[in-house]
């Protein structure tokens, strides 16, 4: 198990091992955080095996990025269904054929 990122060699991407944990890979490209993450479904027994919950780590990273005023791009499988809801002020509209919103989706937004 785990997560990975594939990128063009010429990009100045660095890994932040201190911010990484199981299923959370934290990279930086200049002043942007790039996060590759897997969040098992909320009810999954997988959470018992984590030393650091990837949900908690994502929350910490969002706080850190806000404190440092660094944008953060998150990619991965978050098991978060958000339907057509959007987050933030004046976000671009979203049109998804999946209209279901789950609790993880709501908390992610």
């Amino acid at each position: 198990g785990g997560v990975a990122a594939v990128f063009r060699k010429h990009l100045p991407i660095t890994k932040h091992p201190d911010l990484c944990s199981d299923d959370v890979l934290v990279l930086a490209l200049n002043d942007v955080f790039l996060v590759s993450i897997y969040l098992p479904p909320a009810s999954s027994p997988a959470y018992r095996a984590y030393e650091v919950s990837p949900v908690d780590r994502l929350q910490e990273l969002a706080g850190l990025a806000a404190t440092l005023d660094m944008p953060m791009i998150i990619g991965g499988d978050l098991n978060a269904r958000t339907g057509n809801l959007t987050a933030g002020i004046d976000p671009p509209p979203r049109s998804s054929p999946d209209l279901t919103v789950c609790s993880r989706g709501r908390s992610l937004l």
């Binding site: 198990g1 990128f7 063009r8 060699k9 959370v24 590759s36």
Partner: peptide, 13 residues
């Protein structure tokens, strides 16, 4: 992986 790409992993036991 094509030569112009790199991969960074965070593996889990």
């Amino acid at each position: 992986l094509p030569e112009q790409f790199s991969i960074i992993e965070q593996s889990r036991p």
